[in-house]
């Protein structure tokens, strides 16, 4: 029974991780930018929810759209200031990664200066509640955040699969020149994809705010976790990233429950190394760049 419970909890968290990583994957797919600033954008979203909760008493679940919008706007600003020049190039360059690294430091430093590196969480009423199904006990916070993440991911997947613009996004990530040749405004697609990616980060932040405790510098740890998911999923494949997130989250929960919680994050880092040894292109990837 305990086993089943851990698996269910792992899955709930897995969906949250999947949401965290989905925006990253989208941005990598379209722009070939490994956005190391993604985790700090998630934390920015968490701060938006936190302040809305403290000042207005707004439930963090309800503040998902607000956090998404705020971070998306921040993303557009960053894009215009920093990444626009690099959006034009089809292939990735090291310098772009370092740019996102610098961006992450800038936001980290700013948030830490304004709000200090103290641990925070939003604590809506259900944060400490749980439901029982038979013997299995599921904390509501994890359950809600998992379900909402799943819903957002499904909406994203449907959008990418069926909408005209979604297909254009996928087409652009496959071949930028070909997309231009059928009349896609690639720069606009890049901008919108970046904004959507950031909105996903923001919405993940709102959910994270009551599942994990957060503080600005925590994003370094999340960088490594999320990056391991992206690599596992095969760089830029949404399905891959989601499956990777679920698998690793469950394993990590099992390690946390049956061995020691201190080692549960290690699962992600070690998985990354294992993948690099066995299949450098990722478990689901075929791309080699």
């Amino acid at each position: 029974m305990e086993f089943l419970q851990v698996i269910i909890l792992g899955l709930c968290l897995g969906f949250v991780y999947a949401l965290m990583v989905s925006g990253l994957t989208l941005i990598f797919g379209v722009m070939r930018i490994v956005n190391l600033a993604h985790p700090i954008l998630i934390i920015s979203g968490a701060f938006v929810s936190y302040w809305l909760f403290i000042k207005l008493g707004l439930d963090p679940i309800l503040s998902v759209p607000a956090a998404a919008l705020a971070v998306a706007l921040l993303g557009v600003l960053l894009y215009k200031l920093i990444f626009e020049k690099n959006a034009a190039q089809q292939t990735y360059s090291e310098m772009t990664v370092l740019l996102t690294f610098g961006t992450a430091m800038v936001i980290d430093g700013l948030l830490a200066f304004l709000f200090h590196n103290t641990q925070r969480t939003t604590s809506p009423g259900y944060a400490t509640d749980a439901i029982f199904i038979g013997d299995i006990f599921i904390p509501l916070a994890q359950l809600y955040s998992g379900i909402i993440s799943l819903v957002i991911i499904i909406v994203l997947a449907v959008f990418l699969k069926y909408s005209e613009f979604g297909i254009a996004i996928r087409a652009t990530s496959q071949n930028r020149t070909s997309a231009e040749l059928v009349g896609v405004n690639v720069k606009f697609v890049c901008l919108i994809s970046f904004a959507i990616g950031c909105a996903l980060a923001g919405s993940a932040g709102a959910l994270v705010s009551f599942v994990f405790s957060f503080f600005p510098s925590r994003h370094w740890e999340w960088i490594a976790i999320l990056m391991s998911l992206v690599v596992l999923g095969g760089m830029g494949s949404l399905t891959g990233a989601v499956v990777g997130a679920l698998v690793l989250s469950v394993i990590s929960s099992l390690v946390g429950a049956f061995y020691s919680p201190a080692w549960s994050t290690m699962v992600f880092f070690l998985a990354l190394f294992l993948i690099l040894i066995i299949r450098p292109m990722g478990l689901f990837g075929v791309r080699t760049d």
Partner: peptide
């Protein structure tokens, strides 16, 4: 490329955790 940079960060996190 990107995978190498990521792995270098992960390496640091592994040592930190360890």
């Amino acid at each position: 490329g990107p995978s190498f940079i990521i792995s270098s960060i992960a390496l640091l996190m592994i040592f930190r955790t360890l």
